[in-house]
């Protein structure tokens, strides 16, 4: 039995995101109004055994999936 886990990784507030800014400009260029900020992140979808603990997922995110100098992460257990 495996569970689906999503790990959302996003840039910390205050860290400049030139990619997000370029995407925002492209959105405006397509004619969509009203988008004042875009921050680009990453989403990891994982299939993990039921026995994998929250603590182990936390360690995975800290040690590899996110760079804690510049990024935050959020772990979501998908029902």
């Amino acid at each position: 039995m495996t569970h689906k886990i999503r790990v959302h990784v996003s840039l910390k507030p205050g860290v400049l995101d030139p990619q997000g800014r370029a995407i925002q400009h492209a959105i405006a260029g397509l004619g969509f109004a009203g988008v004042s900020d875009v921050r680009a992140g990453r989403l990891f979808e994982m299939e993990v055994d039921a026995g994998v603990t929250d603590a182990a997922l936390d360690d995975m995110a800290r040690q590899l999936l996110a760079n804690m100098v510049i990024e935050n992460y959020r772990i979501e257990r998908v029902q």
């Binding site: 400049l16 030139p18 990619q19 370029a22 760079n67 100098v69």
Partner: peptide, 17 residues
């Protein structure tokens, strides 16, 4: 070296992309 924690900070996408 930064990813390994031997040096502080991080190297990010160039400002001009």
């Amino acid at each position: 070296l930064t990813e390994a924690g031997l040096l502080p900070g991080a190297l990010m996408r160039n400002a001009g992309l």
